[in-house]
């Protein structure tokens, strides 16, 4: 999957040609610099490592400084690997949002918003105990039974329970590209993408 690294800027809504209001997300995409070209001869697989976002030199560890120095560019804050670019890419080459065209469908990967410790209704979509009346008074959102009794005498591993929710990698697939602003490095996609405003996202084609 070829793609680029970007930053979620926020959401708004626009009107399409039929006058329908469409929710959309504005993403700043690239420009990304090629910092490594991996080949199957040398690395066992072929891929391209891209870098996005400026970082302070003092905050960059030495190995990353070496990588960016080889690509003849400044220290970067986010690195990611992509495969399957159509054109041959050279070290130090810059890729911009031009990679995408209006009407194409992309996948967007990000880290979802952290929601803290949540119960099973929010976390796993349980429906709760079902009734609010008929004697139910304090277990409306309870998980119900978590297993049988003396056989097996334990709770099976992987039983869905309450716990930390959100803050995991999420991929939202098949988002239509509504607009590309090449001079401002902006991409407008239909619908929502994972994560907070300002969070790093990967846009895969």
């Amino acid at each position: 999957m070829s793609g680029l690294i970007g930053k979620k800027l926020g959401m708004t809504s626009i009107f399409d040609a039929n006058g329908k209001q469409i929710p959309c997300t504005v993403i700043e995409v690239g420009p990304c610099v090629v910092t490594q070209v991996k080949t199957s001869d040398k690395d066992g697989y072929s891929a391209v490592q891209l870098a996005y976002g400026e970082a302070k030199e003092k905050n960059s560890p030495a190995p990353l400084k070496g990588i960016v120095a080889k690509a003849n560019t400044t220290p970067k804050s986010k690195f990611a690997e992509f495969k399957g670019f159509e054109q041959e890419l050279a070290l130090g080459q810059t890729i911009t949002v031009d990679l995408f065209a209006v009407g194409e469908f992309v996948d967007v990967v990000g880290t979802s918003k952290g929601k803290g410790f949540q119960g099973v209704v929010k976390r796993h979509g349980f429906s709760g105990v079902g009734m609010q009346t008929h004697g139910q008074h304090n277990r409306l959102r309870a998980p119900g039974s978590i297993g049988a009794s003396s056989d097996p005498s334990r709770v099976f591993k992987g039983m869905r329970m309450a716990g930390r929710t959100g803050g995991v990698r999420v991929k939202k697939t098949n988002l239509e590209i509504l607009k590309v602003y090449a001079e401002k490095n902006l991409l407008v996609v239909k619908g929502s993408v994972p994560g907070h405003k300002g969070s790093i996202v990967l846009i895969e084609k």
Binding site: L9, G10, T12, I14, C24, V26, K179, Y181, L186
Partner: peptide
């Protein structure tokens, strides 16, 4: 935020 205003302006 400016980028979002820019996009809205473009579609207005």
């Amino acid at each position: 935020m400016d980028a979002i205003k820019f996009v809205e302006q473009e579609f207005t």
